[in-house]
């Protein structure tokens, strides 16, 4: 693994890759939907207990939690399988080692979505300020961290499916199935411990803090879920790299 090679792959994917426009389009669409929801939430102020304090951060956070994985699915499902299908992966891995290539792919998608969620976080604060409330930088940073990591979890698991697939068709089908399985595990509820394997469990655990604009922030809960998400990403990326190293290309 080489940092400079990871940077080269990531920059190439972000700026010059064949799919970069496609990824930028879908990530911008996600940010646009979040901003649109925040904009029109003032018309639905009666839905909130205190109509003077609409939780803009919470609205955008819930949108990212619910529809974010679908946007990640359409952008990440073919990140490796496309290269395998076209045969370009053989040229790349002759120059760059497999781990760097894999991490470069992950970093490119992660950076794009992290930038877009940062813009959404700033827009949330702008709407909060324009509705006559003070800036809440703590929640803005927490929103950005959790949204980015949540989407990062999904990027890593869809890259895993993409690594296993021979072509884009299989990759898309299996990614959709995996998303369905994730939702199924998460919906189990109760004491079923399979939900601990799903990223939505950790993200929904902190949604209460995003909603409560006046109360204290439960930092212990925040840090616990943040570390859990980080561990999830590290574990999944490790499995991705191991799988890619084992694959016969």
């Amino acid at each position: 693994m080489n940092i400079s090679k990871i940077r080269i792959v990531a920059l190439d994917e972000i700026l010059r890759g064949v799919k970069s426009k496609h990824v930028w389009f879908f990530s911008s669409a996600l940010a646009f939907i979040c901003i649109l929801a925040m904009h029109y939430s003032t018309s639905l102020a009666f839905l909130f207990s205190d109509s003077g304090k609409i939780p803009f951060t919470y609205i955008s956070f819930m949108i990212i939690l619910i529809i974010g994985p679908f946007f990640i699915l359409v952008t990440a499902f073919d990140s490796i399988s496309n290269e395998v299908e076209k045969g370009t992966v053989r040229y790349i891995i002759s120059k760059i080692d497999r781990a760097s290539f894999m991490l470069g792919k992950f970093c490119s998608l992660f950076l794009i979505f992290a930038v877009l969620t940062f813009i959404v976080a700033i827009m949330g604060q702008v709407y909060t300020y324009s509705s006559g409330n003070a800036f809440d930088l703590e929640r803005m940073i927490l929103f950005w961290l959790f949204s980015s990591l949540y989407l990062g979890c999904f990027i890593s698991i869809f890259i895993f499916v993409s690594t296993l697939s021979k072509n884009n068709k299989i990759a898309f089908t299996m990614s959709a199935i995996l998303l369905g399985i994730t939702i199924y595990f998460f919906m189990q509820g109760g004491n079923e411990y399979l939900r601990y394997l799903t990223p939505p469990y950790y993200a929904f655990a902190v949604s209460g803090t995003m909603k409560n604009t006046t109360g204290e922030i439960d930092y212990f809960n925040m840090i616990r879920n943040l570390v859990s998400m980080l561990l999830f990403i590290v574990a999944t990326l490790s499995i991705d790299i191991l799988t890619f190293k084992r694959r016969d290309l």
Binding site: S165, M174, G180, I181
Partner: peptide, 18 residues
């Protein structure tokens, strides 16, 4: 749902397996 979960496990194992 269980059958789909099993199929996915088979897909992963089949592709990782030597």
């Amino acid at each position: 749902f269980n059958a789909i979960v099993g199929s996915f496990a088979a897909f992963v194992t089949c592709n990782i397996s030597d």
